[in-house]
Computed example of a mutant assay.
Amino acid sequence: MSWSNSLPSENAILLQSGTNEVEVLVFRVGEFTLGINVAKVREVLSSPPVTALPDSHPSICGCFRLRDSVIPCLSLHQHLDEPPSCPPEEAVVILTEFNQHQIGFLVDVVERIHRISWTQVMAAPSIVAQSKAPVTAVSQIDGRLILMLDFEMIADQVALGEPKGDAIANELGVDRAGQRVAIADDSATARKAVENTLRCSGYQDLHIFENGAEAWNWLAASADNRQGRPPIDLLISDVEMPQVDGFHLTKRIKDHPQLREIPVLLYSSILTPDNAKKGKAVSADAQIAKPELHRVVEMADKLIFAAMEKKSTTRDDVPTAREAELSPV
C-alpha cells in the first residue's frame, strides 16, 4: 500500500479550529502499538537504503536520501529496546517533521489513521514521566490503549532536538519578575526547556501544567476567585495535548469574559500553514515554532508590554469622577 497518498497534503485543513480533535497514525514496533499525531507526519516510506554514520547515537541507523534532502534515520526498535517483528526488508519509515527538522523513524508496520477527540487522549501516568520513558500520553482507540510517543524527547535524547535555554536580553524593560506566566505542554522535555529559559531570563512566577485540561481547570477556578482580574499575564501553550489541545484551550480563554484579555502564545513543534490558520481562527495572540526558545522570551515580553500599554491607554480614556462632573452634556 502507498501511504504517501493517504496522508494529508500541506494545504489540506482536515480539522476545524477549536474542535478539540486530532488524527492519530497508529503503528507497531515489536510488541508495542504506538501512535503519532498525523500533523507531524510527512510520508510513510518503504525502508530506504540507509548509509551508516560514524560515532552516532546507537539509535541512529544512519541517513538516507529523499529527493533533494538527506534525512537522519532513527530505529525505534533500538531506542525502545524492542526486537523487530518483521524482516528488515519489510520495515517502513515514518518521515516526520517537527521542531523544524525532518527525521525518519524505522518501525515494523503502519496500521491506519484514526480521527479522535483529544478527550480520548489521557496524560501518561506520573510514574511514566518519572521513569523517563518517551511516552507523552495514552489514547483510547477501538478498545485498545495506544501509547503516544514523545518524539521531542526521543529527538532530544539522541541530540536531534530542543536546545537548552539561556538568558535573553530584556530590551523592552518588562518587569519580568512581577509577571505571572502559565506554561501548558505535555512534553516534559519541551516544558522544562521553556521553564528554564524563562527563569534564566527573569520570569519567576511560573505556573506549569502538563496538558490543556489542567491549565483550563486552574484558569477557570482562579478567574472565579479574582474578582475580575485575570489570574495570569500570559499563557504559553503547546498545540497537541491530552484532553484539551492548545487551539481549544485558546478558544475557551478568548470566549471567557474574565480571561479573554490574557495574551496567548502558541509554541508548537508543528507550526504548519494550516495550524497557523487554526491559531489565528481561535484568536491566538502569537504563534512560534519550536525550538526557537529565544523567541519565546522575546514574544512574551512583547505581548505583556502590549497588554500593559493597552490597559494604560484604557485607563487614560476613562474620565475621573471630577472630569465627568465638569464635562458638558
Rank of each mutant, 00 (worst) to 15 (best):
A184H: 03
P163A: 15
I208R: 02
D150Y: 08
T189V: 14
F151D: 02
I146T: 02
H207I: 03
A167S: 13
V181E: 03
E171P: 01
E152M: 07
I146R: 05
A155H: 01
M153C: 05
R191K: 12
E152W: 00
M148Q: 13
V174K: 01
E162L: 15
A177G: 09
A169T: 08
S187V: 11
H207S: 06
G212T: 04
V158S: 08
R176A: 07
G165M: 09
Q157E: 12
W218T: 08
E152R: 01
E171W: 03
V158Y: 09
P163G: 15
N211S: 04
A169H: 12
I154E: 01
P163N: 13
L206K: 04
Q204I: 08
T197M: 13
F151Q: 09
E210T: 06
G212D: 04
D186H: 14
D166T: 15
I168L: 06
T197E: 05
A193S: 14
D166P: 00
A193L: 09
L147K: 07
I146Y: 02
A159G: 02
L149Q: 13
F209C: 00
S187H: 10
A167G: 08
A167M: 14
L198E: 06
T189M: 13
K164L: 12
F151C: 07
L206D: 03
M148D: 13
G161I: 12
L160A: 07
A193N: 11
S187D: 06
D150M: 06
A182H: 01
A184Q: 03
I146Q: 01
S187R: 05
K164A: 12
I208Y: 02
L147G: 12
A188M: 07
Q204A: 04
N196L: 10
V158I: 15
R180T: 04
N217E: 14
R180D: 05
D175M: 12
N170E: 10
V158T: 10
A167H: 08
E152K: 02
D156R: 10
A190W: 01
I146D: 05
S187W: 04
G178A: 14
I183S: 05
R199N: 12
N217D: 11
G178M: 13
A184G: 03
A184F: 07
E162C: 15
Q179I: 08
R199I: 07
R180V: 11
Q157R: 14
F151T: 07
A190N: 12
W216G: 07
D166N: 14
R176P: 03
N211A: 04
S201D: 06
D175E: 13
T197G: 04
N211G: 03
M153P: 00
G178V: 08
A215C: 15
H207E: 00
D150T: 11
A190P: 00
E214H: 11
Q179S: 13
V158D: 00
R180L: 10
L147R: 10
L149V: 11
I208D: 02
K192T: 14
V158N: 04
Q157S: 13
A167N: 03
G161D: 06
A182E: 01
E214L: 08
L172Q: 06
E214K: 09
E152S: 15
E214N: 11
F209A: 10
E210Q: 08
Q157P: 01
V181F: 05
E195N: 12
G161A: 09
A184Y: 00
G165H: 08
E162V: 15
G173S: 08
L160C: 10
A188R: 09
M148F: 02
L149C: 06
W218V: 05
G212E: 02
E162N: 06
C200D: 10
F151Y: 12
